[in-house]
């Protein structure tokens, strides 16, 4: 019998390569009437970064977090405060924010990762609400009023003010994150993470340092959320940073993105982020096209309904469902092909 081989590089890096092409092409397509899609695309990248971390944490390691909007907001505000009150250059503020997010996740993870299942869910939920309340009420964050006119990341004037430039910037970061996550999950670490999800006791018996690995993943996911926060603050909306984005509900939305896309691999999270982000736009657009007045009032309702529908029809998530359909389509084509070749000669 043949010795099994690792996944070849060609196959592993096909996904990131396709993603890169899509990223490069998107702004070329989103022109003129469709230019409004560019900010949407930026948001997809920002959420995609957070959800990639969440996929590692929840989909691979099996540790739930209902508090990641907290880390996201923490990163955004630490960066903003460092850049305004702290007078740091933007790049340094970004570094400070990511480091602060990682440190916070380290401290929090050290405490709460002893908990399991629902208890972990509650603890992280509390963490998220606490962070959200700080953002909403503290003096230094501007409270409910928010902060205005943050410095912008310009890369030496390269992306100043241009939506396409910003798009490329955030997606460059997101692409690197995805590229890294794809490699990590294909390495023995990915296996160890899934082993921890399967059975922590057995994982320890297999020589896997369970707690440390859980902690590392938690820190990484916290740092990624903080990184996304800084991108949100410095790139997406530098003119105004408010607390609405970082509510308790957004933590739940982030988890929803991960679950909807399918948590078995990195791509699911990305797909979930893209779908959830564009749903809002699609609903508004669809409402306009259909001539429905006051779409905004119905938007949340449609949003909730779509969520339920996706879950009912693709309970494993969108990506696995798509994979299944693709396979079935291929099988169907294959049969047609065989029939034709049989008939022809």
């Amino acid at each position: 019998m043949n010795v099994p081989q690792p996944i070849p590089n060609r196959r592993l890096f096909r996904g990131p390569a396709l993603l890169l092409v899509a990223i490069l092409a998107f702004p070329l397509a989103a022109r003129g009437d469709y230019a409004y899609l560019l900010p949407l695309g930026q948001l997809c990248a920002i959420y995609g970064i957070i959800v990639t971390g969440l996929t590692l944490l929840m989909g691979f390691t099996g540790q739930i977090s209902l508090g990641h909007a907290g880390f996201y907001g923490f990163g955004a505000y630490v960066g903003a405060v460092a850049a305004t009150a702290g007078r740091l250059p933007v790049a340094a503020a970004l570094g400070v924010a990511v480091a602060a997010g990682a440190l916070l996740a380290l401290a929090a993870g050290f405490a709460v990762l002893r908990l399991h299942g629902h208890h972990l869910a509650l603890a992280t939920l509390c963490l998220g609400v606490i962070l959200g309340e700080f953002i909403n009420k503290a003096q230094i964050t501007g409270g409910a009023g928010g902060m205005f006119d943050l410095p912008e990341i310009t890369l030496g004037g390269l992306v100043k003010g241009s939506a396409a430039g910003k798009f490329y910037l955030v997606w460059a970061v997101a692409w690197l994150v995805v590229l890294w996550a794809v490699q990590l999950t294909a390495s023995p670490v990915g296996r160890a993470l899934k082993a921890i999800q399967g059975d922590e006791g057995a994982a320890a018996a297999a020589g896997i340092p369970v707690f440390w690995i859980k902690l590392k993943v938690f820190v990484i996911s916290g740092a990624l959320a903080a990184l996304a926060g800084t991108l949100y603050a410095f790139v997406y909306t530098p003119s105004y940073l408010g607390p609405e984005e970082f509510s308790l509900m957004f933590s739940v939305t982030l988890v929803t993105m991960a679950v909807i896309g399918g948590m078995g691999n990195v791509w699911g999270g990305l797909a979930g982020a893209a779908v959830m982000t564009s749903l809002h736009e699609l609903i508004t657009l669809g409402g306009e096209k259909l001539g429905i007045v006051q779409v905004a009032r119905w938007e949340q309702l449609i949003f909730g309904l779509l969520l339920a529908l996706i879950l009912i029809f693709c309970p494993e998530g969108l990506m696995p469902a798509l994979g299944g359909w693709a396979q079935r389509a291929r099988a169907w084509w294959g049969r047609r092909w065989k029939m034709r070749t049989r008939l022809e000669p």
Binding site: Q300, F303, L307, A308, I312
Partner: peptide, 22 residues
């Protein structure tokens, strides 16, 4: 969703809560 995993059912209740609020 009776056959689905627990996390999917939980997210479904999240969807329900969004609908109810709306």
């Amino acid at each position: 969703l009776r056959q689905a995993s627990a996390s999917v059912q939980i997210i479904a209740t999240v969807g329900v809560s969004i609908c109810l609020r709306a």
